[in-house]
């Protein structure tokens, strides 16, 4: 029959490197027996003495960790900030990109709504799990081989600080704000003449809607210059942005609902066909979501700048 002491020592030794086991075995037993003896001398029964001695030594796994000087955490304070930044980046930037790309591929391959939604959910769960697991596993391994933050990215310097949006918006904001409407106008005009033999978009809309869109997109360019010259997002700018976003998105969504966005003569996009339905749905979703995103984002920026809160510039601040 094994005694409580045997069981305790054996349990503790399980988690101690082979080479140290024999020595720790002897020493730990001697120490426990010394303590038991002292308690018996003080008047306790043998069983009670063993019990209280082992209770005082505590969880044998914990004791073993102390003997082998093993970290009692998966990722310690040295690596945790880098791990957290990496996870944030993976889940807010990489995962959405992967989901969008796989969804687009699925839409092209087989645009059945059930498969598209199922594919999105599967991608989010499987890619998210893999990213979380492998990142955490790598960091836990780094923790155990003793690589610290300095080895990963050098010591922290003030240059690692993130940049925040300056009070005055610079050219970095002007360029994309102007580039988008210009590209859309160019795409709208050029698809009529160059990209394909038959234009992709319905030429019937040149009677009103395509010129109308070009005019509104022209206002978007004017808005971008207004933002640049004002230097901050104000409530008026946010309101104008919302109006312009709706003036672009609402007619396009309306045209898409009626099936009037695409050229009925374009190969494969015949009226009543399945491809036309999905292409129209994609246009609808893209314009509606983009407009909503744009309205909210600019409103948030305007509100933050009104309160004087800084906004972190994406891509700065390091790993």
């Amino acid at each position: 029959m094994t005694t409580l002491i045997d069981r305790y020592v054996t349990t503790a030794l399980r988690r101690i490197p082979e080479g140290q086991r024999a020595d720790i075995d002897r020493e730990l037993r001697a120490s426990i027996e010394d303590a038991v003896e002292a308690r018996v001398d003080a008047g306790a029964t043998h069983d009670a003495a063993v019990e209280s001695t082992l209770l005082e030594l505590g969880d044998p796994d914990r004791l073993a960790d102390r003997y082998s000087d093993r970290p009692q955490h998966l990722i310690g304070p040295e690596l945790y900030p880098a791990w957290r930044r990496m996870m944030t980046m993976l889940f807010t930037v990489v995962l959405p990109i992967v989901v969008i790309v796989t969804t687009v591929i699925q839409l092209i391959d087989d645009p059945a709504i059930g498969k598209v939604i199922g594919g999105m959910v599967t991608t989010i769960i499987s890619v998210g799990t893999h990213m979380g697991f492998w990142t955490t596993g790598t960091f836990a391994l780094l923790e155990r081989v003793g690589l610290d933050q300095r080895a990963l990215r050098g010591p922290w310097t003030p240059a690692d600080l993130p940049e925040y949006e300056p009070t005055r918006l610079g050219r970095s904001q002007l360029v994309p704000n102007v580039a988008w409407p210009v590209l859309l106008i160019a795409g709208l005009v050029l698809q009529q003449f160059t990209f394909t033999d038959v234009p992709v978009l319905d030429p019937a809309n040149w009677s009103f809607w395509w010129p109308y869109l070009i005019v509104v997109l022209g206002f978007e360019i004017a808005w971008a210059i207004w933002v640049y010259r004002t230097g901050v997002y104000t409530r008026a700018i946010a309101a104008a942005n919302a109006v312009l976003a709706l003036l672009v998105a609402a007619p396009v969504v309306w045209l898409a609902v009626g099936g009037h966005v695409f050229n009925p003569a374009f190969p494969g996009l015949a009226p009543g066909g399945e491809p036309l339905y999905w292409a129209s749905l994609a246009v609808m979703a893209t314009f509606a979501i983009t407009a909503l995103w744009d309205i909210v984002e600019i409103a948030v920026r305007a509100e933050r700048s009104r309160r004087g809160l800084p906004v972190q510039v994406p891509g700065t601040g390091g790993l």
Binding site: E56, L63, R66, Y67
Partner: peptide, 8 residues
Amino acid sequence: VEANTLYP
């Protein structure tokens, strides 16, 4: 000081 701290 506790035994489980001192011995290690």
